[in-house]
Amino acid sequence: MTSLVLSCTLIGIGLYGVLTRRDLVAVLASIEVMLGGAQVLLASYAAGVSVPAVGEGITVVVLATGAAEAAIGLALLVALVRRNKTRTDQIEEVRG
């Protein structure tokens, strides 16, 4: 139950950050918070599985995928920062 509350809190904070922060770095950080919350939720569910190795395996895979995603996100961020674009309202040119 504790872990459920924790994960929901993390996801909520993260989502709020993703939707409201204007700083791209902060948005990426919020995403990581969200992902962390979801992974906590997954881990807590996986812990209840009768064969522990299965739950652990799935959790590790999801964690690894999250890491890969973070890498791509940071790479994109670097590419944008090099063009002096660090805020979300600076990337609103494509529309319609």
Binding site: M34, L35, A38, V62, G66, G73
Partner: peptide, 16 residues
């Protein structure tokens, strides 16, 4: 990323 978060939650729910 947000969609992925929901996917992970879904996996957790299914897993349980």
């Amino acid at each position: 990323s947000v969609a992925t978060v929901f996917f992970i939650i879904g996996i957790g729910v299914l897993l349980s």
